[in-house]
Amino acid sequence: MSVNTASPPGTTVAVPPTGDLPERGRRRRKRRWAAWLFLLPWLVGLFGITLGPMIASLYLSFTDYNLLGRLSFVGFDNYVRMFTDDPRFVSACLVTLKYVLISVPLQLAFALALATLLNRGLRGLAFYRSVYYLPSLLGSSVAIALLWRQIFGGSGLVNTALGALGLTDLPNWIATPEWALGTLIVLNVWTFGSPMIIFLAGLRQVPQELYDAASVDGANAWGRFRRITMPMLTPVIFFNLVLQMINAFQAFTQSYIISGGSGGPVDSTLFYTLYLYQKAFTDFDMGYASAMAWFLLVVIGLFTGAAFFTSRYWVHYDGE
């Protein structure tokens, strides 16, 4: 990505910074004090609501806890068991990793493409935007499970369509271990509405002047997209990348409703969090589930950290 557009023409619109330095220093100090006021609600929430349960779960990860009273400290046993004595844990890791690596880029590409398309001067834009967002309204409705069966089942819509093209020997997509995860990836891509909306909002923040100036310079549509839109959008792209990655690592609902909570067939859709859920609420092994949760936190943290590390090379903040 080109970084040399860091100061596109037209951004230095406001009054150039003036004022003497001592004045600014006083403001800095005042701001520092003000920062805590701005953070106050969040800090109350963090210490009052969020942090306690998090620390509790960290403690539980070192215990054998069955939810109903039995609780004994077991050190690192849960963590050791995960890697040495649990093939389902390993398979859940692999399923989740595959899901993250395929569905996140696909979903983001779709979302970005559609957002760019729908940001253009197309008549009936509001209508299209709503239509593309519709699937994301469904949330975790059980209706999705039935829908997906109608589409990807043995005699579902997809196979009917492919059959009409003369193809035979079609798999039962939703109930074949090799394909079931694929249908969940499609489901995730299908609900690309959320990142799309965020992209759209990002596109609306790109100052019109930049385009005007570029047009005067004779840039074509692709040139404008590459030189103005993309760099200006990088903070939002970064946000979507990080958040969709976190979401994908924690994917739960899709498999929970479509496989009925089992992660089947043959654990082919057993997401990490679904297995964690089974451990916690079916097997009553909350200690183990907590250990899984904290391991996942570390993994997501590493991925997110990596994203932040690379961001300095490709994410451009106009305000900084």
């Binding site: 406001a14 004022g19 609600p41 969040w42 609501i49 990002g202 200006m232 903070p235 946000f239 903040y317």
Partner: peptide
Amino acid sequence: FLAVDAFFIFLMVQFMRGLPRTLDDAATV
């Protein structure tokens, strides 16, 4: 009301960081 949903904080942070700082400075002045 206690900003427990960090998703939105991060979202808004990203948008704010994209806003030209010159505007703040002008207002501060």
